[in-house]
Simulated scan of single mutants.
Amino acid sequence: MIDVCLLGTGGMMPLPNRYLTALMVRYNGKSFLIDCGEGTQIALKKSGWSPKPIDMICFTHYHADHISGLPGMLLTMGNAERTEPLLVVGPKGLERVVKALRTIAPELPFPIEYHEINSDSDQIIIPDMPEFKINAFKVNHNITCYGYSMQLDRIGKFNVEAAKANNIEQKYWNPLQKGEIIHTEDGRIFTPDMVLGEARKGIHLTYVTDTRPTDSIIKYAENSDLFICEGMYGEPEKLQKAKENKHMTMYEAAELAKKANVKEMWLTHYSPSLVNPKEYLPKVKDIFSKSIAAKDGRNITLKFEDE
């Protein structure tokens, strides 16, 4: 299962009751933060989640409302006596941008490692966690910007009868279930496909903000269990403004959710002028019925279908 918390839903500037867009994801004892705008620390505190176990921070792009909270976050993590490395991920120029922000946070008790994205798509590998994949994909903003898609694969069920039929001793069952290939002392070779059924449906989460609609979003969000997407403007007459500033309206986000056949969509990254996002939700639901105008702190635990 994957725990998801949308820490903030604001765009451009934080408001008293709306922090800037940031997403926290937890899986198997590890935590991943996407974007870190001003106020993210407070939003994290209000959510009840801790900054100490953050293993990776991914940035969609380098506008201030998505990264200006990083120096304070790093200092807080350091004050929590963190010593393990922190991996940061983002578009070209990542190390230069982070080091510039660290001018006010120069001394940290932990090293920072960098994964710079230099192509239209990239996959971030998590050590010791091959079943959890993070894919970055380019979207269409006025500077280089990426969306992120997280997928938790699920292997097939263990087939006891197949294991017995292949004369595989029980001591090898667990390693095979974990994907290991077994070489026995007497020269036999056992592979996972000998004891596992067909792969089962996993969990799929996609996060997109600061972009016009693109085919890449539909591709990477396809069949997502949860699609978190920018809905900066609710007023239909602001479509032209959305086009000029390379943002999206709620209705465009709903069209993407419909085309990608997602299970549920949370809208986020609202314009400061958008006082009550729910006001526009009925027309959004006419396009995609499983749309939610998310508020700060909205969270969910995504589980496998049969759990």
Rank of each mutant, 00 (worst) to 15 (best):
I300M: 13
N245Q: 14
G231P: 07
E38T: 11
M250P: 03
C229K: 02
I124L: 08
A254P: 00
H269C: 13
K45D: 15
T9E: 04
P236Y: 03
I181G: 07
N17S: 11
T21A: 10
N135M: 08
D296G: 03
A221F: 02
L7V: 01
K290P: 08
I182Q: 00
G231M: 02
M248D: 05
T144H: 09
A260Q: 04
E305F: 13
Y280W: 06
L44M: 12
G37E: 03
H183Y: 15
D306Y: 03
N28K: 01
E222M: 14
T211S: 07
I2R: 00
N140T: 13
P127M: 07
S216A: 12
V97Y: 09
S68A: 12
P127H: 04
N166H: 09
E38G: 10
M129P: 07
N174H: 15
P109M: 08
P272S: 07
L94I: 04
A165E: 14
P175R: 04
E84S: 14
N166M: 08
E180N: 11
T268A: 12
D122F: 02
I112W: 05
N135A: 07
Y220T: 00
N79M: 15
A257L: 00
Q170C: 12
V4S: 03
S31W: 09
P109I: 01
Y207I: 00
T60S: 15
N299E: 14
A43D: 06
A165I: 13
G69D: 01
G8V: 05
N135E: 06
G11F: 07
V98K: 00
M12Q: 15
A43W: 05
T249M: 06
I287M: 05
K278I: 11
G179C: 04
A221Y: 00
T83L: 11
I182T: 00
L108A: 04
I189R: 14
N79P: 10
M194T: 08
T40H: 02
L33A: 00
A105T: 10
D55I: 10
C5Q: 11
C36M: 04
E95F: 06
D215N: 13
Q123L: 11
A100G: 14
P71G: 08
K295M: 14
G147V: 02
D128L: 12
W49C: 09
R200K: 12
K263W: 06
L44C: 06
K285P: 09
L6K: 02
T209V: 14
D122R: 01
K295I: 13
E244N: 15
Y148P: 01
N142I: 10
I228Q: 01
I287T: 02
D186H: 10
Q177S: 14
N140I: 09
L7G: 00
P277Q: 06
M248Q: 06
A254W: 01
I217Y: 04
D55E: 15
